[in-house]
């Protein structure tokens, strides 16, 4: 399949705080873009703690990894794994045995430039933290998806990451146009927000003042999807899967109302998407 877009865009999925849903979101977003016909590569930057292969269900097909490619021990073609469902989606797994210092800017830049020739989108799944690994994942980004849970430490860390995106990326260092930022709120519970036990979508958005790409509800379907190694966006009946599909629409410039942000009424509970 040939490229759909003239220029490739690099998108980092980042958060600062760990465990907020970056890998889940990277898997869903890359799958969603591929489903829309874009040639998509998703790179696991979490060197030493690879996980994306599991969420994408391709862990048994990993032979070479990102670090092998960086160090010239394998070609990109050898290391990239074709997705089971979409033949325009490829996964570049992280190394499990090296550490984050195995990546250097020059080599990562070289790999990304090579990928840009044959892909429309490159999704970079960032490791947690604000150190070298996270900076490397965002360094070449054109756009950033900030994954935030409606919870104080996650919001604070997201704000830290916004500062780093604005100062330490390639675009910032070269004085180019700034990285386009998107806020993705995940693990949101409308019931708890309605009770005042959880920050509302509006609260989080107001504090961070980044345009809202989507709200992914807390959902049992996410764990089930990762158990099976099928990105949750493939589960068209689930609330989280539908919320990720909506986010893809917005990312591609289509307007669609935010769903799953208000407490479900009886009608929705009977006929709406499954939260189970």
């Amino acid at each position: 399949m040939s490229k759909k877009k003239q220029t490739c865009e690099v998108i980092v999925v980042t958060s600062g705080k760990g465990g907020v849903g970056k890998t889940t979101s990277s898997a869903a977003i890359s799958t969603g873009l591929a489903e829309r016909g874009y040639r998509t590569a998703v790179i696991d930057f979490d060197v030493g703690l690879r996980n994306l292969d599991l969420v994408m269900g391709c862990e048994r097909r990993v032979v070479y990894d990102f670090v092998n490619v960086i160090q010239g021990e394998a070609t990109l073609n050898q290391a990239m794994i074709k997705d089971k469902r979409f033949d325009n989606l490829f996964i570049l797994p992280a190394s499990q045995t090296r550490d984050k210092d195995a990546l250097d800017k020059d080599s990562v830049g070289r790999v990304i430039n090579e990928l840009k020739e044959s892909f429309d989108y490159i999704i970079c799944d960032s490791p947690a933290g604000i150190e070298a690994g996270a900076v490397m994942a965002m360094y070449f980004a054109d756009q950033a998806i900030i994954v935030t849970n409606p919870e104080v430490s996650s919001v604070r860390d997201s704000d830290r990451i916004l500062g780093i995106l604005a100062s330490r990326s390639h675009r910032a260092e070269e004085g180019k146009e700034r990285i386009k930022e998107h806020l993705l709120i995940t693990r949101f519970s409308p019931e708890r927000a309605a009770k005042g036990d959880m920050l509302s979508v509006q609260d989080v958005q107001e504090i961070l003042s980044v345009p809202l790409l989507g709200v992914i509800p807390e959902s049992k379907s996410v764990l089930r999807a990762s158990n099976e190694g099928i990105p949750v966006i493939n589960d068209k009946d689930s609330d989280a899967g539908q919320a990720y599909s909506d986010a893809i629409k917005r990312f591609l410039g289509e307007e669609t109302p935010m769903r799953f942000i208000e407490k479900a009424g009886i009608f929705q509970r009977l006929f709406g998407a499954s939260t189970e």
């Binding site: 919870e151 604070r156 920050l199």
Partner: peptide, 19 residues
Amino acid sequence: DTTADIAKKRLQIIVSHQR
């Protein structure tokens, strides 16, 4: 204030300092 209101106020102060 609900706990969410308190969280929001605290975060607004933190963010204004961080920025």
